[in-house]
Amino acid sequence: MTLKRAFALLVLGLFVYLGLYTWNERTGSLNSLAENTGLEIVGAILLPAEWVTSGISDTWSRYVDLVNVREERDILAERLENATAAINSLHEDRHELLRLRELMHFSEPKDWTAIGARVIGTRIGPQAALNSVILNKGFSDGALPGTPVVTRLGVVGQVLRSNPNFSTVLLVNDPSCRIAVISQETRFPGIIGGQGLGKPPMVYYVPPNAQVKIGEFLITSGLDGLFPKGIPVAWVEDARPSDTSPFQTVTAWPLASLSGLEEVLLLQPAAGRKENPFNRFVDDLPLLPEATPQSLTPALPLSSATHPAGGAPQAGPSPEQGE
């Protein structure tokens, strides 16, 4: 092959590539083709391996590794009792809130349903440049792009791409992920965005006069139109005035442990449903006649497990938790 011919081939190939690229930009056809074939095949390959590994680890932890189970059971029973008592004490507040809402003509927050999904893989291949995980639920199960993904501790991220049976989730610590948040106590608004592995996400556009408290929780504000309001996202690690920007520099660690994720929940708006299943669960809990102020003093499991001021043995998330 002469040099001239090779050059002509290269130019032709470049034109074909640019044509394909722009056509895909306009139609998204090649993206859909890759999602519906590549992701489907890889998901089908990874699923049996995930079954085997989770089966082995379940068998080990349930039937073999039973050291300290009795002590752990006693501790959990005590914590359950305390949590039930705490919930019972909040019953009256909740009913009062409902009455006041009705009185003030506040609209009811939209109900959401949660669908469980299993993580079958993390970043796979060179094209997985963003921090992500692969779930065993696709758009046929409701995992549409933009669907919020959470664990019981807090927000994990949102669905980025999906095919009928599998989906890819963009994690909250990725620099491309943005979620509208508000602080739980001082109520300052902001937008949280990741900074990469091992670094705490940044909270952008925090006003300079906002009284940011170190250690307070950030919850979803619902202003992005994707996440329901009130889901815990992160805790504030540091806040200081910026030299270059009119906003404060605020960093916060995610509450959900993003390394070693196994199961997550996909949140979907429950159209036409009046009752939230979580509320029913709270209402169904039996009232404890022996509930005393002393039994209510231990912090909620969520805060004790992850909050730096919780005073629990695992005092606050380590830098690895953001990974």
């Binding site: 895909n24 796979i124 440049a129 992500s132 692969i134 963009l170």
Partner: peptide, 21 residues
């Protein structure tokens, strides 16, 4: 290889094709 890499990746279609070419 292109379909598997692009499908499981998080970037828009294009880089795997370019890389293999």
């Amino acid at each position: 290889a292109i379909l598997l890499q692009e499908g499981v990746g998080t970037l828009p279609f294009g880089s795997a094709l370019l890389f293999y070419v």
